[in-house]
């Protein structure tokens, strides 16, 4: 187990290094710079602006300096929002995204798992067809359609929630619902597929032959193995959800981290873009390690394969 963990950690660090390096040089190669304006900025002013952020240095020197600062935990200053550090921005946005992600994931699991299990247990009955058809719609409907629909329906028409904002607890419902619905549809389908595969195995037939009750077969014998694909999916899904969703945050005015991916790239905000990429990559890699561990615990075969 220790060796397995050590190996995965080593892999993770190498992955992160590769991501940081690639991101840095891709940004360098992108056209334009962080200080762009429709109005001409006179060359001497632009030089001073670049110098203020060390962007006037040669790229290899910037890269070395960035890595050095990163090791000290310093992600630098953003070039777009003068006076804010990248860490401050991540620090203020991430707890919000984490909250939204956890709520969304809780909702996705609370809906997706039972629906998937029931659909597998009642295969080829309306309890299978109806939720599966709905989940297909859920997967196909992008969040930028679902979000405004929920805001119009539950917010403006039924007047249950505020259509946007991030103040009280009720403001969490619509974004979490929008984010969660999409994932719940995936989870339902994966749960159903995983369960069906397990339910056709010999040991289930043996359990049935020995007279185990249907619920005990489903929950005690089949569930742990049937959920392996879902658990594998949860790692990246969780990382994706807690680093936020640009679309959901944008629709509901949630001040989370997701929007920074898009806006930092659009603004050529080098440091912020690198910072959120490093942060997201770390989170994703960590989530994958955790998922590997859980899978190894759930299914001994995974350990052998690695």
């Amino acid at each position: 187990m220790i060796r397995f963990l050590g190996h995965r950690l080593w892999q993770s660090i190498a992955t992160l290094f590769a991501i940081i390096t690639a991101t840095f040089w891709i940004i360098q190669a992108a056209p334009g710079g962080p200080f762009q304006s429709e109005r001409a900025i006179s060359p001497h002013i632009r030089e001073q602006m670049l110098a203020a952020y060390g962007l006037d240095r040669p790229a290899p020197e910037q890269y070395a300096r960035y890595l050095g600062n990163l090791l000290r935990g310093d992600l630098g200053l953003t070039t777009k929002y003068e006076g804010w550090t990248v860490l401050e921005i991540i620090g203020s946005a991430f707890p919000i995204s984490l909250q939204l992600g956890l709520l969304g994931m809780a909702f996705a699991l609370a809906v997706g798992l039972p629906v998937g299990i029931i659909a597998a247990a009642r295969r080829n009955s309306p309890a299978d067809w109806v939720p599966m058809a709905l989940s297909m719609i859920g997967i196909c409907l992008p969040t930028f359609v679902m979000g405004p629909l929920l805001a119009l329906g539950l917010g403006l028409k039924l007047n249950l929630f505020n259509v946007a904002g991030w103040y009280g607890w009720s403001d969490r419902v619509l974004p979490a619902l929008t984010l969660g619905l999409y994932y719940s549809a995936y989870i339902a389908r994966m749960t159903r597929a995983g369960m069906l595969e397990v339910l056709s195995r010999d040991f289930i037939r043996t359990a049935r032959a020995k007279g185990a009750s249907e619920s005990s077969i489903l929950l005690r014998h089949a569930l742990k193995i049937g959920l392996t694909p879902v658990v594998a999916y949860l790692g990246p899904a969780m990382a994706g959800m807690i680093t936020g969703s640009f679309v959901v945050e944008n629709i509901f005015q949630v001040p989370g981290l997701g929007q920074h991916f898009v806006s930092a790239a659009r603004n050529n905000d080098y440091t912020l873009l690198l910072g959120v990429t490093v942060f997201y990559a770390t989170l994703l890699v960590a989530a994958n390690v955790v998922v590997d561990l859980i899978q190894a615990w759930m299914n001994p075969r995974v350990r052998l394969e690695s």
Binding site: P148, A151, L152, G155, L156, N162, V163, A164, G165, N250, I251, F252, Q253
Partner: peptide
């Protein structure tokens, strides 16, 4: 608020 439709919904919603 840089999402223009969201801003209009917020105005309609009394925010």
């Amino acid at each position: 608020i840089d999402n223009i439709p969201a801003e209009e919904r917020m105005f309609r919603d009394g925010q």
